[in-house]
Design a binder for these strands. Structure first.
Lengths: 221, 221
DNA sequence: CCCGACATTGACCGCCGGGTCAGGTTTTGG
DNA sequence: CCAAAACCTGACCCGGCGGTCAATGTCGGG
């Protein structure tokens, strides 16, 4: 496929069709597990035609990603009230993003760990499931004693596990250059703030320094 | 490879060696992009030997995952002071996990979106970068007017973006069965609580209902 | 010293899937 | 009406890679 090619109406239609067939299949089976043949078969055309519209499989995928990214951004902007306070705007954007991503769930699922290879989905999930369970129990205890705000314990637990996961990710991917100790301390504060029942409790908890386990790993094995 | 095989000391050593060579290569190039040949070459042995120790490539990967999962869990438990309050324990576990994952960064990077296919790393990242930037600006404004607690704006922004991403993920993967509207509202609360400068402000912000953009998408395009 | 289990080798197989291409049909515009 | 460009076909090519296997080496115990 050459760089600039004049598409007729029918051409545009075909291309869109291939795009959406691919999106469905990607969502269903993942990127790697979807063959070009599958895409063209679903569209009911011959394999060669695929390369009339796309450089290759990767180029098609990229087009899909870019398109969704633009849509998400438009949705966010539409949901934000420009006269509201910053915190309110963040909240609006957050909720709108969640909804948008849920509507396009199959596509966004594509961009994830567990779609990498469905075969590993279970193994990978067990890890966070355990972590979530532990955390949920702690949260329930905290709610009972009034230290943690009274919200869905399961969801709050997912928040903690999630925070660990993505701050770790951001660190690995170089999105933040902060030292790991600084980052760990920050995330500690972050989860405490998001869970604490009131600011008095948050302040109390945060006033106690946390020890680095590596420094005192002499006790119980 | 048969199910139960008696490994000699040397055998154990070889197996461990293959495991760690694989881990390095996986971390460097991703799972799919690492061939069995690469692994055995790095270990300096013949290809056939790989199948003496492992059923196949996937089995090796699974072993790696399980091993790290167990280590992580042990580390968490070691870091937690059983006499502390639940909230304090969560904080301790959170910090310990962050540190542990940072130490094994290359491995944990493996389990991620962007390792799916390095070729797409850039395309995928642009989306969250934009979102993070927008959010950081809002947060800076919020800090200036005292509505958002005075912490690193960049990191706080990553927290918001992260929350959107992983709550969306948990929803897609069926980890929570809550309706999307309920979930969106929850996450809205979650980010407000994690950012608000004090509980008074949080309460104020949360007292205003957020509109569903889909219901009023008539105004500005 | 020799048998059997563990350990190791590397050539070989077979399939799968991305990408090509020579050729045919339809549409467009001059 | 006719060329050129767009559109479409399906057989074919080919490299890569997971996995096999028969042969050989090594070592410990009886």
């Amino acid at each position: 496929m050459s760089d600039q090619r004049q598409l007729t109406v029918q051409g545009e239609k075909r291309k869109t069709q291939l795009l959406s067939c691919a999106a469905e299949l990607f969502a269903q089976h993942g990127y790697a597990e979807t063959r070009v043949v599958d895409i063209v078969e679903r569209a009911g055309v011959a394999k060669g035609l695929f390369y009339w519209y796309f450089e290759n499989k990767a180029a098609l995928f990229t087009e899909l990603v870019v398109e969704h990214r633009e849509q998400l951004r438009r949705t966010q902007h539409r949901a934000i009230d420009p006269t509201a306070t910053p915190l309110q705007q963040i909240r609006q954007g957050t909720e709108a993003s969640l909804r948008f991503m849920a509507e396009r769930a199959p596509f966004f699922a594509l961009l994830e760990v567990e779609t990498v290879n469905r075969a590993f989905a279970n193994v990978l999930r067990v890890g966070t499931d355990i972590h979530t369970n532990d955390t949920r129990q702690l949260i329930e205890a905290g709610i009972r004693r009034g230290a943690i705000r009274d919200d869905d314990p399961e969801l709050l637990a997912l928040g903690v596990v999630g925070a660990v996961g993505y701050y770790g990710h951001f660190h690995r991917s170089g999105r933040t250059t902060m030292s790991i100790d600084g980052l760990a301390a920050f995330v500690g504060r972050f989860v405490v703030c998001s869970l604490a029942a009131d600011e008095q409790i948050a302040r109390e908890v945060l006033s106690v320094p946390t020890r680095d386990p590596r420094a005192s790993a002499v006790d119980k094995s």
